[in-house]
Design a protein around this nucleic acid. Structure first.
Length: 580
RNA sequence: GGGUUUGUAGCUCAGUUGGAUAGAGCAGUGCCCUUCUAAGGCAAAGGUCGGGGAUUCGAAUUCCUCCAAGCCCA
């Protein structure tokens, strides 16, 4: 299907050429002043210098050469040189029907394999608010990329190899030191069942972590356990596997609640098998050098404005580091998944680390093909003091705590307004409303900007919020359910065309969201569409409309709006409601 | 100290390769539920786009400089 924007460009470009302005491309945008037009062309302003003519003169020339067509009506020139025009109502109505079909199934062919790294949860640790952005943004980006034709794989990339594992192993030992996992002489098979329950695991890390902060001896013990684990001590590895298995279930359940679904739950440890090979490869091929005992790879480039510090492969103790794991993971992803592109949806603060890793990968030429490595940074969740958000005890707020707060607020609201609903309905509605509020608030700020963490904002259900979009969908639904199927001619009245024009702008917003890896563009779009629909809703009653064609047309628009809003919310990974 | 990001209404944020009157939400003001769900709509109010300079027909947007804050690396 040929999109309206392309068609408009063709027609107007032809007028430019016919008028003697031989251009390859021109610009078509929204008209800033609605009474002047639906769209406007600003190109005469840009071309004034090139042709040594006043923009107004160019615009007038072009207007004279604009051929009669079925799309553009009432074209005019405005100071200092805009060409403004409207779209014919009949054409718009026909176009809209086809457009909605096209949007449902855009028929874009698969173009590349993309792996998206957007988890970063740590095994045995509860999710905190910082994990929310990565998950929300990453899941939305994944869905947007899939819609635009990419073959996507989402990886949770769990932290499963750090100090927290040592803490949990310590906790198990403290409770049951007699277990075979701690017996160096034990040579048999280890038990298939974990020696702890899910609920026990939940409290192990927080309790040991808290104690280790005050107890240096305990901290040292934990470090030594972690070291033994990473060195491959048999019993610890067996126990570690149990911890990872149970943790994955916990983490998956948490992400499920947020409507976030990973295709892979790989962890840092999974790339370990490539690590020695990569280290060996780098050293053997002479890419590294020794500096202060550490093995480093220089990644600065001659035309760098600022010095990029070297990539560290091994520290002075000869151990692999976080950066080494990153390298091994990239190799793993290329070999095992044959990716063309990897998107890292991570906190802005990690940018330097990734620049170093990406440069190192290119420099050592270890990949078989040119994989596009992209850092998709997002801003920090800050407190009202402008610093990264911390609770009173100095830790990041747990996600569960935040979710409970929003849920309770939603429950209050639903109970207050929907007294006649059943208990199940109230529960379900509150859940969906709460999650939509949380996710929409998170997603609607452009990703790279820091976000002020404001509980009241997350708990707000009015204005530019998730619940407002849900509410709009239920309003549309309510109308559709009350009118029997009718047939008529689809015509657009002047008061309804604003909604129609808004509907066809979906393509622009998803295009921006895709190009900039920024779901906030879709949030803006969904909000403006909902806004337009609510204005349309308020102007006149659809159910009581007596003219059949008018009623049919309004119903069609209502249906289109509902479909489009649901599509947007689906792309943002936010569940919607039929009734609330 | 070096680098980097940000500064737009009281608060939280939009603002396309420079372009028409800088836009939303929240808070506050005034209307609108005997009519499709008021979690809504309509209207008004709110601004020295951090300060100063430069570039030009035209700057929130580009450049310089200063101020303030966050982050990263030492």
């Amino acid at each position: 299907m040929e999109l309206l924007n392309r068609k408009l460009k063709q027609i107007i470009l032809k007028a430019f050429c016919d008028a003697g302005y031989m251009e390859e491309d021109i610009n078509i945008g929204d008209c800033a002043i609605p009474k002047f037009g639906d769209f406007s062309c600003q190109s005469p302003l840009f071309l004034a210098k090139k042709y040594h003519k006043a923009p107004f003169v160019i615009a007038s020339d072009v207007l004279l050469h604009l051929q009669k067509n079925e799309i553009i009506v009432n074209a005019s020139v405005a100071n200092p040189g805009y060409i403004n025009f409207f779209i014919d109502n009949n054409y718009l109505a026909e176009y809209l029907k086809k457009y909605l079909e096209y949007v449902k199934n855009p028929l874009i062919s698969k173009n590349k394999k993309v792996l998206i790294d957007y988890g970063g949860a740590n095994c045995a640790k509860p999710l905190h608010v910082g994990h929310l952005r990565s998950a929300d943004i990453g899941e939305a980006i994944k869905r947007i990329c899939v819609y635009m034709g990419d073959d996507c794989v989402g990886d949770a990339h769990l932290g499963d190899w750090g100090l927290q594992m040592g803490m949990v192993i310590y906790a198990v030992w403290e409770k049951n030191p007699e277990l075979v996992y701690f017996d160096d002489n034990y040579a048999g098979e280890y038990p298939k069942e974990p020696p702890f329950t899910i609920d026990e695991l939940k409290v192990m890390y927080p309790s040991i972590s808290k104690r280790a902060k005050q107890d240096a001896g305990l901290y040292e013990k934990v470090k030594s356990i972690t070291h033994d684990l990473q060195s491959g001590r048999r019993g610890y590895i067996a126990l570690w596997k149990h911890i990872v298995d149970v943790s994955k279930k916990l983490i998956k359940a948490d992400y499920d609640k947020l409507n976030i679904h990973f295709d892979l739950y790989l962890g840092e440890s999974d790339s370990k098998k490539y690590q020695d090979e990569v280290i060996d490869y780098v050293i053997r091929n002479g890419y590294s050098r020794i500096s202060d005992g550490a093995t480093i790879v220089d990644v600065s480039m001659p035309d760098d404005k600022t010095e990029i510090p070297p990539f560290m492969l091994l520290n002075s103790a000869g151990s692999a580091l976080y950066s080494t794991t990153e390298l091994a993971t990239i190799v793993q992803r290329e070999r095992e998944f044959n990716v063309d592109q990897i998107l890292y949806v991570v906190d802005n603060r990690q940018e330097l680390h990734f620049i170093q890793a990406f440069r190192c990968v290119k420099k050592i030429n270890i990949l078989k093909k040119d994989v596009d490595l992209k850092f998709i940074g997002f801003g920090t969740m800050n407190g009202t003091d402008g610093k990264p958000y911390k609770t009173r005890d100095g830790n990041a707020m747990q996600l569960k705590e935040l979710m409970d707060m929003v849920k309770n607020k939603a429950l209050e609201k639903v109970k207050e307004t929907k007294a006649n609903y059943s208990q199940d309905e109230i529960e379900n509605i509150s859940d969906v409303v709460a999650i939509s509020a949380l996710k929409f608030a998170d997603l609607s700020v452009f990703r790279s900007k820091d976000l002020v963490f404001d509980v009241d904002k997350f708990c707000s259900f009015e204005g530019k919020t998730g619940p407002y979009i849900l509410y709009t969908i239920t309003r549309a639904n309510s109308i559709l359910s009350k009118v029997p199927n009718i047939e008529g001619n689809f015509t657009l009245s002047d008061e309804d065309r604003k909604l129609a024009l808004c509907l066809i702008k979906f393509t622009d917003s998803i295009q921006s969201a895709y190009e900039k890896f920024a779901p906030s563009y879709l949030c803006d779009y969904a909000y403006s569409l909902a806004n337009e629909f609510n204005a349309f809703y308020g102007k006149s009653s659809i159910i009581h409309e007596e003219n059949i064609d008018k009623q049919y047309s309004k119903l069609l628009l209502t249906n289109y709006t509902k479909d489009m809003l649901k599509k947007c919310m689906d792309l943002l990974a936010i569940n919607t409601l039929e009734k609330m």
